[in-house]
Amino acid sequence: MEMVAKQKLPQKILNYVLLIILTAVVLGPFLIGLWTSLLPTMDIAKGNFLSLHISLTNYVDAFQKTPILQYLGNSLWISTLTTIAQLIFCSMSAYAFVFLRFRGRKVLFILFLATMMLPFEAEIIPNFMTVKAMGLLNTYSAMIVPFLTSAFGTFMLRQSFLQMPDELKEAADIEGLGHFQFYWKIVMPYNRISLITLGAYGFLGAWNQYLWPMLTTFSNAFRPVQNGLRQLQSEETFNDWGMIQATAAIVVIPTLIVLFVGQHYFKSGMNEGAVK
């Protein structure tokens, strides 16, 4: 804090100027997108960016003419279910690695570790066939089932569980708690910060899926929002820039809000995942 006092005024101003320039660079594309989403497409086409015909017409159009709400709903549903499933299954497997003793635990652990090296993108061919054989193409399940658990989540929670004091388990043993009770009544509430962090990751991860839903969904009824936007963009609306920008804005604004609200958790989660 003493540094603040020592900083000279011109230098302070210079810093602010630089910060504002950087902000403009980072936010530029947002601002351009948001601004044009308010302009009539005619003005955009004519290059009349400084037009004053600002309105929410594009947004109204987006809601009325495109299935953007359906897409958003699909994504919300898929992401929510995926998140809940990951929280449960990752915490369960992390529990097994931390609190259970059984033969082959090391081997299984290494197997889990190994899955983090295998990119899902390189496994789409057999997975597509699997999902097809299961009759799940063009369903929500196709986009949820493969991501019910994650090795990353298991590791993150394992790290967190390992930090718990041994005495909590011992106290639970004396109280006579079984594994399920200990897991549910103590381990889960004790690690809720990590769980929230993982939940945020899981949600955004599912929300940002692109390749897999593109392969497995063919109708707007199930298409999540990322692929929905692509659909809109490739359809006849292609040149209706104002409305396209409005759809993008509709998608990004909620995410931004979630992000700013939950920033604290992301940071702590990333630091856990990164280098301490």
Binding site: M116, S150, F152, Q159, Q209, F266, G273
Partner: peptide
């Protein structure tokens, strides 16, 4: 964009 570690990706946490 957020990297999507939650989908089988390779963003490994440190596992001692």
């Amino acid at each position: 964009m957020l990297k999507s570690p939650a989908t089988h990706s390779s963003t490994a946490p440190v596992t001692s």
